[in-house]
Amino acid sequence: MEGFVALYIFMLAAFTGYEIISKVPTILHTPLMSGSNFVHGIVLVGAMVALGHAESDLEKIIGFIAVLLGAGNAVGGYVVTERMLEMFKSTKDKDK
């Protein structure tokens, strides 16, 4: 049963992702790709849990790498996306 709950989560999440993208204008493709790149930075949370439960030295080293890379994904993804989106303004937003 538990496996099926996961399957339902996977299915619904897949449809959600599909819906979000299907109506996006070309102008936002790169920012959106960057934004979704940021969102999978949630891997950081899993990496923290993995490192938090690591026992052997090898586990600790790899866990450390996981957290390091995950933090890079999350922070870098945010900074880059934020910088890109900051620039999107229409004619009326601009000072004359």
Partner: peptide
């Protein structure tokens, strides 16, 4: 799923499907 972390499951799969479509 392995870590039983629903936030990772949802965020990951949403990006997976959105990214595939993109």
């Amino acid at each position: 799923f392995v870590l039983q972390n629903p936030a990772m499951m949802i965020a990951g799969i949403v990006v997976g499907s959105a990214g595939t479509l993109l």
